[in-house]
Design a protein around this nucleic acid. Structure first.
Lengths: 179, 179
DNA sequence: TCATTGAAGTGGTCAGACCACACGATTTAC
DNA sequence: GTAAATCGTGTGGTCTGACCACTTCAATGA
């Protein structure tokens, strides 16, 4: 028979338990969670397992730990994951040009989004680094902006200057005929 | 006063160290990482701290641990980000739209990168989901592909069909005159 | 009244001890 | 000779107890 179920590790179970506890006990943003030692008791698992779970939740930005004080529930917003995922993706051998190209692509995408808006007015646009901050807002895609900001960070751009790579890609994309 | 650096916790440092080690030692997908005990020695930190780091990386899907065997580096495409995010995030319609637009933007960027390549041949291109897997490779930007994979997973692909949003944005971008 | 002290609680870290499991070499049985 | 059972070693999984550094707050003292 298809034997399968391997009991999930304690620390994975602990993550679930802790989250259930948060919900059940009506713990809100900024509130304090039980101490690690107390969690250890209540969940009947070792403190080390509790810690592995808490560290993971901390990395995700769900909780905040303050030495000497305790563990607190954060106001968790999904966009906090964007930088995290960023470090995950950017980790390896990424070449600088790749990062820069991605940034340019996002800017190009931003322009495309603007261009398909009903009230689009090309003349009100310029293409400096600072201008794109507003353009990203105008695009209406908050995720796009977050990604762009993160990418810009990694690209370590000097700012200010308009990017010639953007010009290049924009002219390149014109050769694409998608019918 | 410039109050500042509190040394990051050992486990956060361990995450960085481990990732550096992976890069330095040329550990590839499927390869085995040093054992927890060895990592503990090499990094001069306790095994529990090593474990907290490894658990976090495991949660993200970067590594895979097999009891009795060891810890292995996962292939990037097996990342756990989507299910992970899914358990933490509420997805409204607007967010889905944003994600989908990002995906389309990345595809458009891919096309732009291809278009500026010397040997570009538009006729060899089609625009299905599967085709973009190869197009992403052809673009030469591995980072772009990674992002696209994640976003595609998250967007929950419709599959083989070409996307009309891509057509829309492509036609939109033509209205941009960047001189 | 106000500063000092110190106890208690908390997260941060470590070391050691088991356990369960997987693998491979050795030994054993056929 | 070959196949099966055995056992040693290494691994991750977990628990415990012990410190440390830090924060808070009540008790203490000037």
């Amino acid at each position: 028979m298809m034997e399968s179920k391997r009991p999930p590790s304690k620390f994975v179970a602990a993550i679930s338990h802790i989250r259930e506890m948060i919900k059940a006990d009506r713990i809100g943003s900024g509130d304090k969670l039980p101490s690690e030692r107390e969690l250890s008791e209540r969940l009947s698992i070792g403190r080390s397992s509790v810690r592995e779970a808490l560290r993971a939740l901390e990395l995700l930005g769900m909780i905040e730990t303050r030495r000497g004080e305790g563990t607190y529930l954060r106001d968790f917003k999904d966009h906090q994951l964007v930088p995290l995922i960023g470090t995950f993706i950017f980790n390896d051998d990424q070449k600088k040009e790749h990062v820069h190209d991605i940034k340019t692509i996002l800017e190009m995408g931003c322009l495309a989004l603007l261009a398909v808006q009903p009230d689009f007015n090309q003349h009100s646009i310029n293409y400096t680094e600072t201008a794109f901050h507003e353009l990203m807002d105008a695009s209406g895609n908050s995720l796009l902006k977050k990604m762009w900001i993160i990418i810009s960070d990694y690209a370590g751009d000097s700012g200010g200057q308009a990017d010639e790579r953007l010009t290049e890609l924009l002219s390149g994309i014109r050769h694409i005929n998608h019918s």
